[in-house]
Simulated scan of single mutants.
Amino acid sequence: MIRTPEQLEALIPAAALRADDSWWPRPGPDPFRLVVGARTLPAEQWLRPRPHDAALVTWRRALLDEQGEAAFQALPGTTAAGRAVLDLVCGVTGDVSSSSMTGRHPLDLAGRLVAEDLCLVDLTGGRPRLTGASLAMPNRWLLADKLGRDMLAVHVPVPGYAGQLAAVVDRFLTGLREHRIMTRANWAITDDPRLFQPAADSRARQGDRIRTPAQAAVSLHVRVEYQTLRLLPEPARDSALFTIRTAHEPLSALADRPAVAGGLAATIAVMPPADLDYKGVLPYREAVLELLRGYAGQT
């Protein structure tokens, strides 16, 4: 039986979309400011498979087929970098890359083997830019809007990015070294249960309906992006690979993780309104804070 992406999404076990506690970023500083928050990741932990990944990978393949250019695009001249990505991914998954070269871009092939979204970043000229992506779980951004653009343009919607992070991120990316893998995390809250969320206008649709902690617990979801960055090997050393493993859980799933709930509440409590809006929290701030503090035992 051939199933649609929607049918396959319903078959993904909740455990496949649960964030490891180690994925969560540390509580934001007070007063709040943007930070890269990257650390070194041991090579053996890169793209480490988790239980139930098979269902997620099956869904990704169907979603990539259905969405076409909305989920995969790569600029001309990226084949060598894509092949380097495919070789790295096959080294983890055990697939044989040469047997799969069927006319698809190698980055597209790589994105069909793992649970992560894969993004290519060109590093030449000191201004890193997005040159390709296999993107099944975008968090309210359109690939067509970002492809070919530098990091400042990619992050235009992020409040404070231009002044606080743009130069830092460009230096960080162009300073990557082979065999040194970096990792960081990001998070957002959404009232949309779907995994594939490319539209920015999907943010905060239920602001008038979700008013209490009980409503927030069942109607809001938290998305955590566990991200890795690594320089590609020769002959593609002018490009980097950015991976995004997305966890997507109802807020109620934090009831058994008091430390995580408390850290997220601490961050939300110090965030300015513009950042809360970008994170999808602003219409629900008080209900979410009360809920998370209750989970953390702070009430």
Score class of each variant (00 low, 15 high):
L109C: 06
S99P: 00
R149M: 09
V89I: 14
P157G: 11
L135W: 08
M137N: 10
D145G: 05
W141T: 10
R171M: 03
D117R: 09
G163Q: 13
H105M: 05
L109W: 01
C119G: 01
V114N: 04
A133S: 15
A136C: 11
L152D: 10
V92M: 05
Q164C: 07
G125H: 01
V89K: 04
G111E: 03
D117G: 07
L113P: 03
V96C: 06
P157K: 10
G94P: 10
L113G: 02
S100F: 07
D108V: 00
L165W: 01
G103D: 06
V92C: 08
E116L: 03
L142N: 14
L135R: 07
S98H: 12
R129L: 05
D170S: 11
T124V: 09
M137C: 13
H105V: 06
M101V: 10
R129K: 14
P128V: 07
D117F: 07
A115V: 14
D122P: 00
D170A: 13
L118V: 04
R171L: 10
S98M: 07
L130R: 04
D95E: 15
V168D: 13
Y161P: 01
L123D: 02
S134D: 02
A153T: 13
P159D: 09
A136H: 05
D95K: 09
L88M: 12
S134K: 01
S134T: 14
G132N: 08
L152P: 00
A115C: 12
G126W: 05
G160F: 03
D122N: 12
T131H: 07
W141D: 06
L135T: 11
L143H: 11
A136E: 05
A166S: 13
C90A: 13
P106W: 01
V168N: 01
G163H: 10
D108M: 12
Q164E: 15
V89E: 04
G94M: 11
G132F: 07
L120S: 07
L123V: 03
R140Q: 15
L152F: 00
L88R: 13
P157T: 12
L118A: 04
L113W: 04
M101E: 15
V89F: 02
F172G: 03
G103R: 03
N139S: 14
T102C: 12
G148D: 11
T102G: 14
F172Q: 12
P106K: 03
R149E: 10
R140M: 14
G111F: 04
T131D: 06
D170N: 14
P138E: 09
G111D: 04
G148W: 11
T124K: 06
S98I: 10
P106E: 01
Q164H: 07
G126T: 08
R171S: 14
T102W: 06
P159Q: 10
C90H: 02
L88V: 00
R104N: 13
Y161F: 15
G148M: 08
G91R: 10
G163S: 11
V158I: 15
M137P: 00
A115T: 14
G125A: 02
E116S: 11
A133V: 05
